[in-house]
Design a protein around this nucleic acid. Structure first.
Lengths: 169, 169
DNA sequence: CGTTCCATGTAAGGCGTTACATGATTAC
DNA sequence: GTAATCATGTAACGCCTTACATGGAACG
């Protein structure tokens, strides 16, 4: 995941490891954040794989290693981006691809969002079926965690639909 | 985290590793699920630490290792449970303690929920302040991920408040 | 001249997963 | 008899974090 997020940011412009951390801090940190301890090794690994290239410079007396995305890296990023939107019950992983959806043709984005909604609706319905039994057998607290789950899935569905509406404008 | 969830389930009754997996599957799997590959080693580790004890039996021709929580384990569980409710921007960690809040005195539960709401409101407000700038500088998709964040925090706040109301009945 | 920010990196460890290995029982 | 379920466990690996180590620049 981290690798694709790095690639996504590098699609805009060349960045250092430090820059990448800043990018995340003021844009994706609500759903994704990485520490330096994972960013720097990731960049090194990605360079070995040929997804990025680096050039070392001294700017303002500071040693910097600025990374750029390669053709291979771009291809990798596109392939990843056009895949189905991820869905996780425990993390808002769906936001990650959508964050970079500006790089995807609108019709593809719309299509993927529709398929995503379908999937989340299925998960929601399965939980809703389970709900009656839990209401009887579980206590207030346990039941409330199930309700949170349903509310959360509903939120994802509504959010996706409102994004679709925004796109159809 | 896994260790406390195991302890939580063992507070009710003695269970095997397999049972624990089943417990999670039909109750916490929406926000927490562990594989056998983490459950069994966790149990072993917890036994070494004296949090649980095991007895091996053959039932219905099946070898079973049934675990029970020890006094030390219970003490550990209480201490954990009465701590502040966890808040994570990326995972619904707050559900974990609340799921076991039946073991906490109601006044303590109410108190912790109030403090939790305060904290989430702070996070929400900080994001709301950031919102205007993002609306201007980011694209539709990037802005939508921020909106999701705000909606998500609002969901947590409303859910907590409705749980509090339920408790005050 | 001390603190904060800029900047890169390593080492140790935590926490979890998937895949593998094994074997009995139950249901069709 | 074969598939699913019950039942326990290990090994390899992924992915991330915290803490550490280093050093220059900018601010007051």
């Amino acid at each position: 995941m981290l690798e694709y997020i790095i690639l996504g940011f590098l699609m805009h412009k060349e960045l250092t490891g430090y820059d990448l951390k800043q990018c995340m801090l003021n844009s994706t940190s609500n759903f994704f954040d990485a520490s330096f301890g994972s960013i720097y090794p990731a960049l090194k690994k990605m360079e070995d794989k040929g997804l990025v290239s680096s050039n070392e410079v001294v700017e303002g007396g500071k040693y910097k290693k600025r990374y750029a995305i390669t053709r291979t890296g771009e291809a990798d990023f596109w392939t990843w981006l056009e895949q189905e939107i991820d869905f996780s019950k425990t993390k808002p992983d769906h936001l990650i691809k959508v964050f970079f959806y500006g790089f995807l043709p609108k019709d593809k984005a719309v299509h993927n969002l529709h398929k995503f909604i379908e999937r989340v609706e299925q998960v929601h319905n399965r939980l809703a079926e389970h709900e009656k039994q839990v209401k009887i057998h579980a206590d207030t607290y346990q039941y409330s965690t199930l309700v949170f789950g349903m509310d959360y899935y509903t939120l994802i569905i509504n959010w996706s639909k409102s994004l679709l509406q925004e796109l159809e404008k």
